[in-house]
């Protein structure tokens, strides 16, 4: 079963890359884009029988490896987008 994990810096933490991208967009004239936060996206193919177990395992690997809980938060989605 497919799980998708989105990792971003916590809202309280300055994202230098996102700020730079927002600045570039403003220089292109996209002033309507107020802010950008850059993150990471993972697609996991997980061998688990149920949606709940897939979600739980994806959360566990996100917590242990995919995200650094000191500076990042993550969100897990399971099933078809």
């Amino acid at each position: 079963m497919k799980a998708r994990v989105y990792v971003t810096l916590k809202p309280s933490i300055l994202d230098p890359q996102g700020k730079t991208i927002a600045g570039a967009l403003h220089s292109l004239g996209y002033d309507a884009v107020r802010d950008v936060r850059q993150g990471k996206y993972f697609e996991l193919d997980i061998d688990a029988p149920t949606v709940d177990q897939t979600r739980s395992l994806a959360g566990e690997v996100a917590d242990r490896l995919l995200a650094n809980p000191v500076i990042e938060s993550y969100r897990v989605e399971v099933g078809k987008p």
């Binding site: 810096l9 933490i13 300055l14 994202d15 230098p16 890359q17 730079t20 650094n68 000191v70 500076i71």
Partner: peptide
């Protein structure tokens, strides 16, 4: 050491990238 939890805190990209 930070990732291993042997020291507290974390690293971000340098302020000016």
């Amino acid at each position: 050491l930070l990732e291993a939890g042997l020291l507290p805190g974390g690293m971000r990209r340098n302020r000016d990238l």
